[in-house]
Design a protein around this nucleic acid. Sequence first.
DNA 1: TCGCAAATAGAAATGATTTCTATTTATACC
DNA 2: GGTATAAATAGAAATCATTTCTATTTGCGA
Lengths: 138, 138
Amino acid sequence: MRAYVRVLKQNRLKITPRRKAVIGIFMKCGLNLSPYDVYAKLKKKLPKLGLPTVYRILAELKDSGILVQSLSDDRLLRYALCTLPHQHHHHFTCRKCNRMEEVDFCTFKAVSRFIENRLNAKVETHQLQIGGLCSKCK
Amino acid sequence: MRAYVRVLKQNRLKITPRRKAVIGIFMKCGLNLSPYDVYAKLKKKLPKLGLPTVYRILAELKDSGILVQSLSDDRLLRYALCTLPHQHHHHFTCRKCNRMEEVDFCTFKAVSRFIENRLNAKVETHQLQIGGLCSKCK
DNA sequence: TCGCAAATAGAAATGATTTCTATTTATACC
DNA sequence: GGTATAAATAGAAATCATTTCTATTTGCGA
Ligand SMILES: [Mn+2]
Ligand SMILES: [Mn+2]
Ligand SMILES: [Zn+2]
Ligand SMILES: [Zn+2]
């Protein structure tokens, strides 16, 4: 939490109970969570919490690099903690427990070269979603 | 078009003017289109066309393998023609003209091995979105 | 401690997508 | 070519995740 507070300050975001609570939820369960998931998990401790606040905080934490947003098949918003901000990598998501893990390995350069040669295009971005079963769930 | 009609029949879908028109739009412009894009492009020729019909036809054509659905950052539905159905490959999308091109090259096996060794997880799926500028737009 | 910009709650709006139902249409069969 | 039937469609309405708005509260620098 100490480190996250530092990141909040770096980004000129005030250290509010809501923001700490949202980060706490992710630290505790380490899952891939939707805004409503976060809202539901915090509703007991913070009965006055509003859903728009959760949406805003999640977006801010993403912009700060604390969270990553995952594009899932259902096209709903989902976020998870990222421990390697500002460093190119990918994420593996368990389809059963929904846990997300860092994948600090990328072979995209070869694909990029293939595309630039074959299609004569300029490759700028790539995003990889990896799914399966984590060590606990398989 | 001939080939697409065959695919429709294989999937027990009737050959209707709407379905042919939707396929025709993709054949003509070859872009990555949202349901509303398709609707707008067809509204002149088919003034009575309804948006729910477009949504349904796009989903059917995707299920038949004629179209692929792309996950874009805005999380809206988007479809494009796929000429390599039932064959593992990826797609490159031009951020300027929105054209989509086949990328019949994949280096994911190495990433998969890395994950299985490092995380002791079972990798099942992967999806790759590639963006940049096509040969015409760059 | 005080003042103020930032953060929040709650209500409301938005807008993409889906559902529902009555009507129309493609096509298998004669 | 005509007919029966299930599939397809239009149009209205519902759904529901997400965003916007505004009055109130709060963190924190001075
Ligand atoms: Mn990460
Ligand atoms: Mn394809
Ligand atoms: Zn798991
Ligand atoms: Zn282009």
